[in-house]
Amino acid sequence: MIVFYDSFCSMCRNSSIIWKKFDWNNHLTFESFRDLDSYPKAMEENLHVKENGQWYVGFTALIQIAKHLPLLWVVIPFLYLFKMIGLGDYIYKKVAANRKLIPVNQCNDEGCQLPANRD
């Protein structure tokens, strides 16, 4: 499974570090979509996961990640419950919309390259 995260987002970077520590069987591969030559604009707004040729986005991607991390198996029923009642997607969208983007290693003598305004 490939987890495409936003390396400009400290919450996303920290989450990927924690998930790596929980990934005892090395099922997850992490890649910043910012390092790709091109990527869909939707990756700037939601977490994307690709597994066996299928894409998962947002809260559904979080569920897929949890399935591969034994320490998180206990919360999977709650994640599905939140998904069914719409609470999971609602909370995910609120958090994703309010995250702070800070470009790492994007500064030079002329200043910092900031991502375009998402509004």
Rank of each mutant, 00 (worst) to 15 (best):
M1G: 08
I2L: 10
V3W: 01
V3E: 03
V3L: 02
C9D: 01
C9Y: 02
M11K: 07
C12Q: 03
R13G: 07
N14A: 12
N14F: 10
S15Y: 11
I18Y: 13
K20F: 02
K20E: 12
D23N: 09
D23H: 01
D23R: 04
W24T: 05
W24Q: 12
N25W: 14
N26M: 10
H27Q: 15
L28Y: 06
F30G: 05
S32G: 05
D37S: 13
S38L: 05
K41Q: 09
E44L: 09
E45N: 13
E45P: 07
N46G: 05
H48V: 04
K50H: 11
G53K: 08
G53D: 09
Q54I: 11
W55S: 12
W55H: 14
Y56C: 00
Y56K: 00
V57T: 15
T60S: 15
T60Y: 12
A61R: 02
A61S: 00
L62Y: 15
I63N: 00
I63K: 01
I65W: 02
I65S: 01
I65F: 02
A66G: 03
A66V: 01
K67Q: 12
K67F: 10
H68M: 14
L69V: 07
L69D: 00
P70N: 07
L72V: 03
V74E: 03
V75K: 00
I76F: 01
I76S: 00
I76K: 01
P77M: 04
F78K: 05
L81T: 08
L81D: 06
F82L: 11
M84S: 14
G86S: 09
G86C: 03
G86W: 04
G88V: 02
G88R: 03
G88N: 04
I91T: 11
Y92G: 05
Y92F: 07
K93P: 07
V95N: 09
A96H: 05
A97Y: 09
A97N: 15
R99Q: 11
K100P: 08
L101N: 13
I102L: 13
I102N: 13
P103T: 14
V104L: 13
N105P: 09
N105Q: 15
C107M: 12
C107I: 10
D109N: 12
G111H: 04
C112P: 01
C112H: 07
Q113S: 13
L114G: 09
L114A: 12
P115N: 11
P115C: 03
A116T: 14
R118H: 14
D119H: 13
